[in-house]
Amino acid sequence: MKRIDIRNILLRFLILPVFLAAAVPAIAADKKQPASQEPLVDLRPSPARTVKTIGVLIYPGFEMLDAYGPMEMWGNLKHIPAVVWGGEEKRVTVRVVTIAAKRGEVASNQGPKTVADFGFGDAPRLDYLLVPGGIGAIAQLQDRETLNWLRERAAKTELVMSVCNGASLLAAAGILDDRPATTNKMFWKDSTQPGPKVQWVKKARWVDDGTVVTSSGISAGMDMSLAVIGRLYGKDIAAWLERLTEYEAHRDPSWDPFAVKAGLVQ
């Protein structure tokens, strides 16, 4: 008959609770959802406590990326999970609307048309205003209705932004007088001509002057938008937008190789 070792049996009973105490937290940790698996996009966002409105001016011949690059960034703020904001109460939604002289279809420089949600006469109150550039901006420099509307709205808006030679329109309306600003480097001379009182900055991806922010050509509007969003709502919010759009933004406003290529600076 096999001899039963009472001491070994007792030792095993004593060790078992210790083993379980150590194993249970580890099992629980395994079952906890890793941070990398937390919801990255809020596909069905609830209404945010704070809602801002950004109006994007469009006109015949506007540059598509000037308008749609920034709209992509601002329009996706609503999909950022509350945890990124630091709590549900801190979430902000930015409503994006398009505005033209008259409501309806407006052809871009590239051809495709965009529907203007509002005309000058019925446009809603704006928190932010974005003015894209494009070949069509040249004709708008002589349009008093457009310049008057810009002047009136800029005076009532928290923040005015321009992309490319959209700055020409702001300059022609007097909005950039005595302010630092930049614009497209390839067409620098023509783009800056409407603003003799503007402190034009030749080498800049964008220039942030507080309530007025201007950017260089076309794609620079996305860098400017992310920089402004980061200033207003935090770097984590801007970084989330970069991740969502798979866009590697230039964070240095003085980064501007195109000024060198255009012969504006050495």
Rank of each mutant, 00 (worst) to 15 (best):
G111H: 07
D122R: 01
R7W: 01
K52A: 02
K235P: 03
R144L: 09
P81R: 11
P253G: 10
P17Y: 09
T93D: 11
M73H: 08
T211C: 07
M71N: 07
F120W: 01
D143Y: 11
T157L: 11
S46Q: 13
V83N: 09
V131K: 10
Y59K: 07
A23N: 01
V131H: 10
L150R: 03
L159H: 15
I138Q: 15
K78I: 11
Q199Y: 03
S46A: 14
Q142E: 14
R151Q: 15
G133C: 02
A220I: 05
A155F: 08
K197F: 01
A23S: 06
E89Q: 10
Y128A: 04
G133V: 02
L130E: 09
P47H: 11
Y68K: 05
Q37T: 07
P253V: 08
K102H: 03
P253L: 08
F19N: 00
K2A: 01
A26F: 12
K90T: 00
Q199F: 03
Q110C: 01
P196Y: 00
M1W: 08
M224L: 14
R7G: 01
F118H: 04
D122M: 00
A249I: 02
S215A: 11
T114L: 13
D122W: 00
I9C: 05
L40D: 11
T146V: 08
P17H: 12
Q199K: 14
G133A: 01
I138G: 12
T50A: 05
E105G: 14
P81W: 06
A116L: 12
E72A: 11
W200A: 06
L14G: 15
G263Y: 12
S46C: 01
S162Y: 05
Q142K: 15
K113S: 15
A48Q: 01
H79S: 07
P47K: 12
M73K: 09
L43Q: 15
L147W: 11
M1D: 12
K203P: 06
G121W: 00
A48V: 02
A155C: 08
V163P: 03
T157I: 09
I135M: 05
S168Q: 05
I4C: 06
K156R: 15
I138N: 14
G121H: 04
N148I: 05
L20V: 15
F118R: 00
G61S: 07
V92I: 07
I175Q: 03
R231C: 02
G166D: 13
Q142V: 04
N184T: 09
A48D: 02
E242G: 11
G119F: 09
L169H: 12
K102R: 07
R151A: 15
W188N: 10
L129A: 07
A173I: 12
K78H: 05
L16H: 00
V198R: 05
F62R: 00
T214N: 08
M64N: 05
E246N: 11
P60D: 14
V131I: 15
M161W: 10
A23C: 08
G230H: 13
R95A: 07
G134K: 14
S225L: 08
R44A: 13
L264G: 13
V228N: 15
I229G: 06
S162C: 06
I15W: 13
G195P: 03
L77M: 10
I6P: 00
A29S: 10
G221H: 06
A107N: 10
G69R: 09
G69P: 10
N109L: 07
R125C: 00
E242K: 13
N148P: 01
V228Y: 13
